[in-house]
Each structure stands twice: as structure tokens, then as C-alpha cells.
């Protein structure tokens, strides 16, 4: 009986806080994506060979954990198969956050475009019930920095 109460409490906590955290995170992602739209990130490997520019490697990474409620829902989904929307939003958030952090670093360098962006995802296993505990996403690329004009 006590086990059941603890389980339900965890579910409720996970649902409440998880939902709140996700909404807040998405709001911040959308806001920052708007601010950083002037630095495009492209997957092309070959930059235009025009003038000499400075380059620098930039990267951003984030580890995001899934909440208790979503893990439970995903566990249920495992029984019948199909789309696991609980994890889809987790990965989407992680990828967008990693790209944003990379762009923030690029801005700190004074860059204007990022080439050859690569995304790397790895799951950090907690070892329990072989579920996805948390995912790490890393985004990296090369930023081109225009030489300063002498004015």
C-alpha cells in the first residue's frame, strides 16, 4: 500500500515538475533561437573560398534527464509499440539547446556563420531497468570569423 502511495506521488511530482520544466525550457529555446537567427548553422563541409577568414571550433553540449512520469509512460508504450512521444520531445529539446549553446559560443567569437555542423547523441544509462535515464547531445562546427574592417 505504501509502495503504491510512493509510486503515485512520484508520478504526480514527475508530471507536475516535468511539464513545468519542459514548458519553461521550450519558451527559453524559442526566445533564444529568435535572437541567434543571424548566425546560420549549415551542414556543408566546404566554405566558400573567397577571402581569408579566421576559423574556430565551437561546440555546445547538454545533458537532459527525462522525468518519472514520462519514463512510466514510455514503459507502457514499450508494451504495445509505436511512437514514443515522451522521448521525442526530450531529444528535440536537447538538440536545440546544444545548437543554441554552440551558437552562443560562436557569437562570443564574433563569428557570422557556422559550417559543417555535427550532432552527436549518446544516452547515459542509469543501469536500472535498462531505460533511457538521460541523453547527452553535443553539437559542434566551425565558425568563420570575418576579419575586422579597419575604419
Amino acid at each position: 500500500m505504501i509502495d503504491l502511495i510512493i509510486f503515485l506521488a512520484l508520478l504526480a511530482l514527475g508530471y507536475g515538475f516535468g511539464r513545468y520544466a519542459e514548458l519553461k525550457h521550450y519558451r527559453s529555446i524559442i526566445q533564444r533561437e529568435k535572437e541567434l537567427r543571424d548566425i546560420p548553422a549549415v551542414a556543408t563541409k566546404f566554405p566558400p573560398l573567397t577571402k581569408a577568414v579566421d576559423v574556430a571550433l565551437v561546440s555546445g553540449s547538454v545533458v537532459i534527464s527525462v522525468d518519472y512520469f514520462k519514463r512510466f509512460v514510455a514503459g507502457l508504450r514499450n508494451l504495445i509499440g509505436g511512437r514514443v512521444t515522451a522521448y521525442e520531445s526530450l531529444l528535440d529539446r536537447a538538440r536545440r539547446e546544444a545548437i543554441l549553446r554552440m551558437k552562443e559560443e560562436a557569437r562570443a567569437f564574433g563569428g557570422h556563420i557556422i559550417f559543417n555542423i555535427k550532432l552527436e547523441t549518446s544516452s547515459i544509462h542509469k543501469g536500472r531497468k535498462n531505460g533511457v535515464g538521460a541523453v547527452e547531445v553535443m553539437a559542434y562546427g566551425t565558425v568563420l570569423i570575418k576579419p575586422r574592417k579597419i575604419s
Binding site: 512520484l10 511530482l13 514527475g14 515538475f17 516535468g18 520544466a21 519542459e22 525550457h25 553540449s61 547538454v62 545533458v63 537532459i64 534527464s65 527525462v66 522525468d67 518519472y68 514520462k70 519514463r71 539547446e97 547515459i124 542509469k126 535515464g133 538521460a134 547527452e136 553535443m138
Partner: peptide, 18 residues
Amino acid sequence: AGLKNIFGGELKGYTELL
């Protein structure tokens, strides 16, 4: 991280570590 596994959200400690 164990706590965060209940509430969800970013694991800042791990991000830094990696």
C-alpha cells in the same frame, strides 16, 4: 542526478563533467 531523474530537466553536473 537521481533526484533530477524524478523531476526531469538538465543535469548541469553531467554537462560540466562531459
